[in-house]
Structure formats: structure tokens, C-alpha cells
Design a protein around this nucleic acid. Structure first.
Lengths: 157, 157
DNA sequence: AGCAATCAGGACTTCTGCGGTCCGATTACA
DNA sequence: TGTAATCGGACCGCAGAAGTCCTGATTGCT
């Protein structure tokens, strides 16, 4: 269905929340703030910490802290942190497995084209673009890629 | 995950196969041609027929026929036919359900940005671009987006 | 030094929906 | 009109995600 996991959705919310208020926030605190079950939020935070999007501080008065500014975090990084590398199909180069119909498969290697296109699309959008509360001079990521995005927007209709 | 279903993968192979050889081909025939289980291929073809990507002819000497040229079928259409409309998250506008944290959710509606970006990325690639056997004057979609694709290919490594 | 608070990591259960299979409806041909 | 070939829709099993819980390690405070 080309759907990204709910956890990734949560991750975005968590990261944006983390960018507001106190610099360092605890897992239960964040969970309460966004109205999500605490264990789930904790799970997301662990994954984010593991991949370096947030830094963690253990012990009393510890918590999580945003490692970079929202504008420096593209969506791809969040997806990669939660769902692993972006690979739309099982047939990605280097998966090793290899489908049985490899010889006759007329799209061998072609999916990379699609994967990269999606990757690029997601890499252009940062968390700052996702934050409703943030003031944004340019309505969307468009302003940053005049060339590519112009085409994008034109062909949208 | 951000993974599209295997059925979609099959659909692309099936459609490309359908563009070669006889104009009208049967479900078992295609299955044999690409080395995939027949019932699965049949299922894919049904979905494709329902959404109008192929036209079906029932009865003896019936089969499926490509409704449009490969170059007129963007990947989005195939994905939409198999997996339904492209909506990466449950929080898409108009899903009705609405998450419980709707009021406090800081990304309300912002996912549309991402959805549209992906949609457009996929809309740019047609099945003709996926067909290895096809002669292509313009090697790939790249020719149409020199800027974006150049980046793509470089960052592929 | 002891205690409390917090993160880290894993195992486990539940459940959605993908992937695969089957049987009935429809149509052309003889 | 009968028959055979083909499409159309319904059904079921299973993998993987989503969510929960528990135990242990680390650190600040008293």
C-alpha cells in the first residue's frame, strides 16, 4: 500500500514536540504532552536515539534532547531510523535473495529508479516543514528546490 | 517499511509482458511467460482490469489487453490500482477516522506535503521507463528532469 | 553510600492485512 | 444449444507490525 508505519508518524510528532519547551524532556513527559501511550513513545525514542536523531541522558533528571535542529532533519532520516532503509520492493539491488524469475524479469534493477525518486522526494522535506506551529516564510519546501520543485508542482495537476 | 506490496511489483512485470507479443493474452499464458504462479497473476490482472489499466475479454479466446501504451502509464496508476490510493499515513485528509490526538497533533495535515511529493515522484516514472527490453532514446526519465535525476544518480552509490 | 528516577534492551502477545487459493458467473465458439 | 475456456468475487492462512511489559544499567540527588 505504500504506507509508512505508524511509528514513523509518531516519531515526527515526538521530534517536533521535543523541539518545543524544555531542551531535555523525559519519555513519560513527551507521551503525556502528545497524548500517546508511554511505552510506544519510549520505543520510538529508543529508535531515534539509536540512530542519533536524539541524544539521551540517563539517570535521574535525564531524558532526551534533540540532536539537530528540525530544519536539519529530512523525513528520510526519520523513516530510516524507524523503518530501516527505504526500499520499496524486495528486488532492490544487493538484497541477495534474488527472485527466482531473475533471468526473465524485465524490470531487473529498474525499481532503483523508483526508490531513488521517492528517496529524493522525502529528502527534500524537513521536519521544520512539517511543523504547523513553526513560522514559515515559504509555505513549503518548494522554495528550496526551484528547479525540481517547479516541475513537480506543474505536473501536479 | 515504506514498502509497496509484492503484488504491485508483479503488476509491473505483467503489464510489461502484456506489451510484448500478442495483443490479447490469457492469464495462464502470462503467468507461464514470467514464471509466476497463475492464481496470483490472475489476481493482479483482475485488479488492473477493475481500474482500467487493462481491458478484459471474457469467454473462449478471451484474455487481457493493454488499455494504454506503457509510456502512458505512470507508476502511480499501477500502485493505485493494486494498493489503493497513495496515502503514506492514516492521518490523510478525509480519512474521517481522525486520530484521538487531533487537537494537539502538531503535524495535522502536514503529511499531505509528503504524500504529494511521493505521488509526484512516482507520477514522473512510466512503465516504459521500467522496461529493460524497450529501446529508449531518452535512457530514462532523467532526460526530463536533468537537475533532479542527476542528484539522484549521484547519491545512488 | 543509599535511593530514586530514567534510559536500554529484549521477549512476548495481539492483530491487521498481504499473499495465496478456490469456486462460481460469463461469454465465445462449434 | 451445448461446451469449454476465461473472467469475477469470496475465502483463508500466515508474516510482520503495533503495542505492552519486564529486567537491568546508569546517573543525579539526599
Amino acid at each position: 500500500m505504500l504506507r509508512l508505519s505508524k511509528l514513523t508518524d509518531y516519531a515526527v510528532v515526538v521530534l517536533i514536540r521535543l523541539s518545543h519547551g524544555e531542551a531535555v524532556q523525559t519519555s513519560p513527559g513527551i507521551a503525556a504532552g502528545i497524548g500517546l501511550p508511554e511505552p510506544t513513545v519510549a520505543k520510538v525514542l529508543k529508535a531515534l536515539a539509536y540512530s542519533g536523531l536524539v541524544s539521551s541522558q540517563r539517570g535521574a533528571r535525564g531524558g532526551y534532547r534533540l540532536a539537530r535542529a528540525l530544519s536539519a532533519i529530512p523525513i528520510t532520516d526519520v523513516v530510516a531510523a524507524i523503518d530501516g532503509p527505504i526500499a520499496l520492493t524486495a528486488c532492490v539491488e544487493g538484497s541477495g535473495a534474488g527472485c527466482e524469475a531473475e533471468c526473465t524479469c524485465p524490470v531487473r534493477g529498474r525499481w532503483d529508479l523508483v526508490n531513488d525518486a521517492v528517496r529524493q522526494a522525502l529528502a527534500r522535506i524537513t521536519l521544520a516543514d512539517m511543523d504547523r506551529s513553526a513560522p514559515r516564510a515559504h509555505a513549503r519546501a518548494a522554495a528550496q528546490q526551484p528547479d525540481a520543485l517547479a516541475l513537480t508542482l506543474i505536473s501536479a495537476e
